[in-house]
């Protein structure tokens, strides 16, 4: 399919796709844009893009992992983000209130981590429950048209989670102004809050651990094996059920962690997940599936596009332009800028 499609391309599209074909070019291009943006709009734009970009990468990495391993297009991924924010809010705010009464600088510095870690755990648990309760049930019954059917299940799950949360916790925004009350630090001549710096650190460390886990550990290798050849994986003794549970748990944990970490920017409310969801998809489509390092670059590109659109055109447009851009990419390079064809892009 890919070959025949390639042959039919017009010379112009051929040229465009060649020009965008290498990962290197993309990165250079991004860096140039970033520098221009910094000069024109000020370094704040860049820093902003870096902070959110790291989190978009976490979201995208999970989304793409689940697709690669389980062939699952997860429409409910944004809901894990929402659940993460919600958990962090309900864990962090009481602790924070308690610490106001009984000040302790040490605990105050650690309290936000309690919220974020709790969110990550809750995210993983929700993922496990969903796999056992929903996806496993479908898989057990039929594998026919799995991609489409499981996608519809995630649509149902998304609707249930959103409205369930709405009924129980209401529609009001649950947010915090900041995790750490410390003075902003000066970076590149602009003041940047401690929250943003720590969140950026969390994203980088998590991505590094995640990458190491997938590449260097036996279980990580097994996860990749399942994504490359399910039958082959079974033949070497890998328990598919276990890997599938683990993968969904990991992916939802990452999304929840992102939601918790960004609570100071995205207060939690029932439908907050929609935007992170499609942004994660944008990243995945930009860099192609199953590409952890690529997710990082893609996350920055999308975040940069957003902040630039917000700055130059208007905040309300900050998803219209990236949407158009991603549609263009999907059109000229269905396998993403980094162009590795991964199973499932073209359904069997």
């Amino acid at each position: 399919m890919a070959e025949t499609a390639l042959k039919k391309r017009s010379p112009f599209i051929e040229f465009v796709s060649k020009a965008t074909s290498s990962a290197g070019l993309t990165i250079i291009f991004t860096i140039i844009i970033a520098i221009v943006a910094t000069v024109v709009a000020g370094p704040f734009t860049l820093l902003n893009a870096i902070v959110t970009g790291g989190m978009w990468a976490l979201l995208a990495a999970g989304l793409s992992l689940v697709f690669g391993v389980m062939n699952l297009v997860n429409f409910a991924h944004g809901e894990f983000f929402m659940i993460g924010g919600l958990t962090a809010y309900y864990v962090f705010t009481p602790i924070s209130a308690y610490l106001k009464e009984n000040p302790s600088p040490f605990l105050t510095a650690l309290a936000p981590f309690a919220g974020i870690i709790a969110a990550t755990i809750v995210g993983a648990l929700v993922g496990i429950v969903l796999e056992k309760l929903v996806f496993y049930q479908l898989r057990k019954r039929t594998k026919e048209q799995w991609v489409m059917n499981s996608f519809l299940l995630t649509v149902g799950i998304s609707v249930i989670i959103i409205n369930g949360v709405q009924i129980i916790w209401g529609t009001n925004y649950k947010g915090i102004t900041s995790y750490w009350d410390a003075k902003p630090l000066e970076v590149l001549g602009v003041f940047i809050s401690v929250d943003r710096i720590v969140v950026f650190g969390i994203a980088m460390v998590t991505m590094a651990i995640f990458w190491y886990f997938l590449q260097r550990t036996t279980t990580g290798r097994a996860i990749r094996a399942v994504s490359q050849d399910e039958t082959g994986a079974q033949m070497v003794g890998i328990d598919l059920n276990r890997i599938q549970v683990l993968t969904l748990a990991l992916s939802s944990a990452l999304a929840a962690m992102a939601g918790a970490s960004l609570l100071f920017m995205f207060p939690s409310y029932p439908t907050v997940g929609l935007k992170p969801l499609y942004i994660a998809w944008y990243v995945v489509i930009l860099v192609g599936l199953g590409n952890v390092a690529g997710a990082l670059v893609g996350g920055f590109i999308v975040a940069l596009l957003q902040t630039l659109t917000g700055y130059f055109i208007g905040v309300t447009w900050d998803d219209v332009i990236p949407t158009a851009f991603v549609m263009l990419i999907l059109l000229i390079r269905p396998s993403g800028l980094f162009g590795s064809e991964v199973k499932g892009v073209h359904e069997q």
């Binding site: 036996t218 290798r221 097994a222 990749r224 490359q228 050849d229 039958t231």
Partner: peptide, 18 residues
Amino acid sequence: NLFSDMSVEENLLLGAYT
């Protein structure tokens, strides 16, 4: 049913997964 995007050695190590 090889794992095409993995190296020869990784494939072999997966063979010893159990």
